[in-house]
Amino acid sequence: MFTGSIVALVTPMNDKGAVDRASLKKLIDYHVSSGTAAIVSVGTTGESATLAHDEHIEVVLQTLELAAGRIPVIAGTGANATSEAISLTQRLSNTGIVGCLTVTPYYNKPSQEGLYQHFKAIAESTDLPQILYNVPSRTGCDMLPPTIARLAKIKNIVAVKEATGNLSRVSQIQVLLDDEDFILLSGDDSSSLDFMQLGGRGVISVTANVAAREMAQLCHLAEQGNFAEARRLNQRLMPLHQDLFVEPSPTPVKWACKALGLISTDTMRLPMLPLTDAARPVVERALKSAGLL
């Protein structure tokens, strides 16, 4: 459940900005039928930053209810206050989630020791498996390989989502690990295949929102060691990997989901805005290049 193509699921909203349950069910059904390995509910792509805490919990619970055991659900539970991250984690304990994805604290830029103590405190507050999430382009905070290796020694810290796009991090982390079972996941679609060829076990993917079957196939081919075929598929997806970030994510991927009929609107909450007229043809071309339109 912590390997393969894991989708960083968008949170569909109606015209008034409320969570759109019907579209959420449609998305989940799409991922179940497409072979997606697991769903991350209310991560960065799920607009965790603009959902109130009670909404955050409710979206995860709705996702669990609609998934109905057909696909594992991982909850985004990160926060820049350790107590807040612990609260989110504990509120979702015993709900049916299979683990938590916890982002590095944003804005306050803690030291490496501060990061270690933050994630250690969260892990010790729960029995749920924990996936570390390192995305310095979003948080302004980079969790370095020695810190990841230290945290990997904690029993229920089982994986890391590495979203720097820096492929050298794979070997830098691996050489420091004592636990061969610790899972490295890419958080960058553009470099995810190379990441897997170096020893990564999958990707937590934005692209999978609209190319679920293709991303599942890509990860399956990589797992089999068929990198020649995987690379041909990845080349077809590359414009999508890149152009889903033509404007701040998840704006482009939400528009793409609507264009494919997966959700009813591409409504965003301020300060995020819908995709601009100038960017729409860019995303449309990427969808066509991938064979999705």
Rank of each mutant, 00 (worst) to 15 (best):
G69D: 11
A159D: 09
H241G: 02
L237E: 14
K153I: 00
C257N: 04
F227V: 09
S168E: 15
T139V: 10
L233D: 02
Y107E: 11
I71R: 09
T265W: 08
I86M: 10
I57C: 04
L218W: 08
L198N: 01
D243L: 14
L237Q: 13
T82A: 10
E47R: 11
C100N: 15
V135R: 08
D189E: 03
A18V: 03
G140E: 11
K254F: 05
L144A: 05
A49K: 13
Y116Q: 10
V103D: 15
L115Q: 11
T104I: 13
G46A: 05
G43C: 07
V40K: 07
T50M: 11
Q62P: 00
L193A: 05
V203K: 10
K161W: 04
L273D: 02
A8H: 00
E113G: 01
L177R: 14
L292K: 06
L293K: 07
G140F: 11
I263K: 05
L193W: 07
G96I: 12
P281N: 01
N234V: 01
G78Q: 10
Q224Y: 09
L244P: 00
A228M: 01
M1S: 09
A279F: 03
Q62N: 13
T3R: 15
R169M: 13
K153Q: 15
T3P: 01
L167A: 03
R201L: 14
M268W: 07
T265A: 03
S191R: 09
R150F: 03
A85P: 06
A256C: 05
I97T: 12
S41H: 08
R213C: 02
H31P: 00
V103F: 15
